[in-house]
């Protein structure tokens, strides 16, 4: 827990973090991704980084959601707000290699 307070960012091994029962699940994920408690303006810095944004913001929405998102009782996983999704998926570049037809198409183009 002391490592949290030091300024230097320690690289955590997620495999170990998962089984440290004294650390809350959301803190595990935060530490692993290198977002310590001390950066308060999480929401702003996250906009720049879409991928990290995906999982970190949820703790900040409301107290209520905090509980539901680490609960497997809820089947539907967390998704971003519509506006962000529309913006993000203007192109399918990031997942092009996941489709059989599309990957061949993009190979031809490049």
């Amino acid at each position: 827990l002391q490592a949290n307070k030091t300024k230097r960012r320690r690289k955590w091994d997620i495999g170990k973090l998962i089984y440290m029962n004294n650390i809350e699940p959301q803190d595990c994920i935060k530490r692993w991704k290198g977002e310590d408690e001390d950066d308060e303006n999480e929401d702003e810095s996250d906009i720049e980084n879409e991928e990290q944004d995906f999982f970190t913001k949820k703790a900040g929405i409301t107290d209520q959601s905090k509980e539901t998102f680490n609960d497997l009782e809820k089947f539907v996983p967390y998704f971003e707000k519509m506006e962000k999704l529309v913006e993000k998926w203007k192109t399918f570049d990031s997942i092009n290699d996941r489709f059989i037809g599309a990957s061949m198409k993009s190979k031809k183009e490049s």
């Binding site: 595990c28 994920i29 497997l72």
Partner: peptide
């Protein structure tokens, strides 16, 4: 990587608590 979230952590913890099995990533 995105699948390793809080839900994943609580899942693995509960599995370990009952079965004692740890997962290697």
């Amino acid at each position: 990587k995105a699948e390793i979230d809080e839900r994943f952590v609580v899942l693995l913890r509960d599995i370990k608590t009952i079965f004692g099995t740890e997962v290697l990533l």
